[in-house]
């Protein structure tokens, strides 16, 4: 059934939810650093690094990020296998949103529009804060609204 056609792209992958929560805490730390550094070259570089870290998660999936590699190598051996797994789709969507927002923050920073830099860095801070601290998936709440807003009624 699952050969090298489109069906592989839609195949679900179950991942350890603690892994991407750890990834969200990495995101939180970097985006807070960027927010405190401010709309200057140092802050822009921090957001550019964050965008790079989001890239594999946004394109392939959250199981392919540097953060998840570190989690598998250094953290999971200490805390054991997960009690339950989750689909990789919600966190991949979250990584895509994160990538988009951090790229916009970098863009506004480079254009020297400080307000834009702070707004989009702020979005990343809030989303990663809710995910890492409360395990709340902001993208899950937004997805249907986005779909409703962008798809015209038949």
């Amino acid at each position: 059934m699952t050969s090298n056609d489109a069906s592989t792209a839609t195949k679900d992958i179950q991942i350890d939810p603690r892994g991407y929560r750890f990834g969200a805490s990495v995101t939180l730390v970097i985006s807070i650093i960027a927010l405190i550094l401010g709309a200057n070259p140092a802050g822009i570089i921090a957001m550019a690094v964050l965008a790079l870290l989001f890239l594999p998660g946004a394109t392939v999936g959250p199981q392919k990020t540097v953060q998840s590699w570190f989690f598998r190598k250094a953290i999971r051996p200490r805390i054991g296998p997960p009690a339950e797994t989750e689909s990789f789709r919600p966190p991949r969507f979250a990584q895509q949103m994160g990538l988009g927002f951090s790229l916009l923050a970098v863009l506004f920073g480079v254009l020297e529009i400080a307000l834009g830099f702070y707004i989009f860095t702020g979005f990343v801070v809030v989303a990663s804060f809710l995910n890492s601290v409360f395990g709340f998936c902001l993208g899950c709440e937004i997805y249907l609204l986005l779909k409703r807003a962008t798809t015209r009624a038949a």
Partner: peptide, 9 residues
């Protein structure tokens, strides 16, 4: 539900 929904399953 949607595919992007951690609490749905």
């Amino acid at each position: 539900s949607t595919p992007i929904c951690a609490k749905c399953p």
